[in-house]
Structures are given as C-alpha cells and as structure tokens.
C-alpha cells in the first residue's frame, strides 16, 4: 500500500501539493476573515479563461493565467468598494472572462488538452522543475504575507478603525487581491482550477471554528491543508481511477461538517462564561451559537440598529 510512495511522480505531487497547500491556507485564512470567499472561487475560473487565451495565441498558458488573474484582481479591487457591490463586480468580471474563455476554446481547433488539465488539475504530471518553481514562488508569497502580516490582520478585522489609525486599507485590499491571484495562478497549475478553491477555503474555515487566536488559526489551517493534500494524493494514487480533487474536497467537507455543528457547543460555553460584553460584540461571528440565551439582547440590539438605520448612519451622512 505504501509502495506507491517510492514513485518519483508521487513524491513530486506530494511536495508541490504541500507547498501550494501551505500558501493557500494562509491566504485562505485572510480571505475567509475578509469575506472574500467568492473571489477565491472566481479567480481560478478567470485563470482558466486566461490559460485558454494563451493556448489560442500559442504562448505558455502560465502567462495567460497570471495576466488574467492579476488583471481581474485589480479590477475587482477597483470596482467593488462595498461588500454588496463587490460580489456583483466579481460575478460580472468572472462571467465575462469565462465567456472569453469559451470563445477562445471554440476558436482553438484542436482539443485543448492543456486547458482542460488546468480546469481539473493534473497533480500527477508534475516534473521536478515544477516542484522547484512552486516551492520558490510559494516561499516568496509566504514572505510577502509575513511582511504585511500585522496591517493585513488589522485591516481585515476592523477596516474602519484601521483606516482611522492610518493603515492604507484600500491599497492593502488591492495588494491582497493580487496576492490571492498569484497564489491561485501557482496552485491552479498543480491542483486545477476546481481544487484551488477547496484548498483556499476548507482548511481556513475549519481552523477559524476551532482556534481562538488568528495565529493559531493560521497554524491549524496550514497543518490541515497539508494533511488534506497529502492524504488526498495518497488515496487517489492508491485508487488509481478517482480524481485527487474529489478526495481532497470530501476530506475537507467531512472534517468541516462535524466541526461546524459541534463548535457552537464548546465555543458558546466558553464565551458565555467569559465576558458578556465581548460576547455581544462577537455575535456577528457566532450568530447561531447563542440565540437561545440572548433573545432579550437580540431584541435590544435590533432596536438600536433600527434607530441607527432610521437616523442614517454617520457614514451615510458623510456621503450625503
């Protein structure tokens, strides 16, 4: 059963997959915190269109991949200022580039094998050179995150306060989107457009439910990501027929579900016993965990929100 680990292509797949999983977990953590899940789904698809365009032009698909994802990331950053608008902007940009991708594919006479492999992933066809490239660029992205760590974290959790304290929130958002784009372009070549999303969201979503501090969440997300990837590749290699993406997606979902349903139990108790004031502030996060005991609070909060809404929040007035 463990014999397959001797094959060099499995080793390559494990190495490249782990590198990608580490970076994806870190970037994914910030993505989940910032509510950018949709961008994580859209950018791989956009990259697919870019790759199709590059194949049509006869250049390396990787160039098309990077060009389209980075361009789209900047576009999303500029177009969508508010959460509501951003989702729409992401959707429109994604469908437009996908439409282009379909056009490119239909113009391209041959069967674009390479393009489909970008869609579904080709994790077992990775050369040692690919592993080196992936490792180096993952390391670079990792260092970039380390440099930007504090301001990024601050602006992710509380953009208003961060802006008031002089953190350049909007440039940071665009830089972060470009960072997602680079990560996605790296990962797409290894694991495929459909799987990137799983690696970005799965470990981070589970880790946030478990961990109590950002640093712990990131550490847990990284280890979960690497475990999922290695286990998934191993199972797929043993099975021989079923795709890696299916295994990784099911493992990730299988771990997330129990955590999702059980975490309110222990987190809810901890929070209720610790500090009611903090608890109230956090309610937007663990919305489902503490409804029963706080019906009264909920009502009061609603009243405040209603009043605030009626009088127009300061932000809305500022715009006026």
């Amino acid at each position: 059963m463990f014999n397959i680990l001797q094959y060099p292509f499995i080793q390559n797949a494990l190495l490249a997959g782990s590198c990608v999983a580490v970076v994806a977990a870190i970037v994914g953590y910030f993505m989940v915190v910032r509510g950018l899940t949709f961008a994580g789904h859209a950018l791989p698809n956009i990259g697919f269109a870019g790759a199709a365009g590059a194949v049509l032009l006869g250049i390396d698909p990787v160039i098309g991949l990077f060009a389209f994802t980075i361009g789209a990331a900047i576009g999303i950053g500029i177009l969508g200022k508010r959460l509501n608008e951003r989702d729409t902007a992401i959707g429109i940009i994604m469908t437009f580039t996908l439409g282009l991708g379909i056009l490119f594919l239909s113009l391209y006479a041959g069967y674009a094998e390479r393009v489909y492999s970008i869609l579904f992933g080709q994790i077992v066809g990775i050369s040692p050179v690919d592993v080196q490239i992936t490792a180096v660029s993952s390391l670079l992205t990792f260092i970039l995150v380390l440099i930007l760590f504090r301001p990024l974290l601050f602006s992710s959790f509380d953009p208003e306060v961060a802006e008031a304290r002089g953190v350049p929130v909007r440039p940071l958002t665009i830089i972060f989107l470009v960072m997602i784009a680079i990560t996605v372009s790296l990962a797409v070549q290894v694991v495929g457009a459909l799987l990137v999303f799983t690696l970005l969201i799965g470990p981070a979503a589970t880790a946030i439910r478990v961990a109590r501090s950002p640093l712990w969440a990131i550490v847990i997300a990284i280890s979960l990501g690497v475990c999922y990837t290695c286990l998934g590749i191993f199972l797929a290699a043993n099975n021989g027929v079923w795709p890696v993406s299916f295994f990784i997606a099911s493992i990730s979902f299988g771990v997330y579900l129990p955590v999702r349903f059980l975490s309110p139990l222990w987190r809810g108790r901890q929070e209720r016993t610790s500090d009611p004031a903090i608890n109230r502030g956090r309610s937007a996060w663990g919305a489902d965990s503490d409804t029963a005991s706080q019906e009264g609070d909920q009502e009061q909060r609603n009243t405040f929100e209603v009043m605030e809404h009626m009088q127009g929040s300061p932000k809305a007035r500022g715009e006026v």
Binding site: L194, L195, F197
Partner: peptide, 13 residues
C-alpha cells in the same frame, strides 16, 4: 463555499 467545494469535487468524480 464549503458546500460548493464539495459539490465541485463530486462533479469531477
């Protein structure tokens, strides 16, 4: 996102 990623995995399978 989680439901989506699982569904995509199923679709590929």
């Amino acid at each position: 996102g989680m439901v989506l990623s699982f569904a995509l995995g199923l679709g590929v399978l």
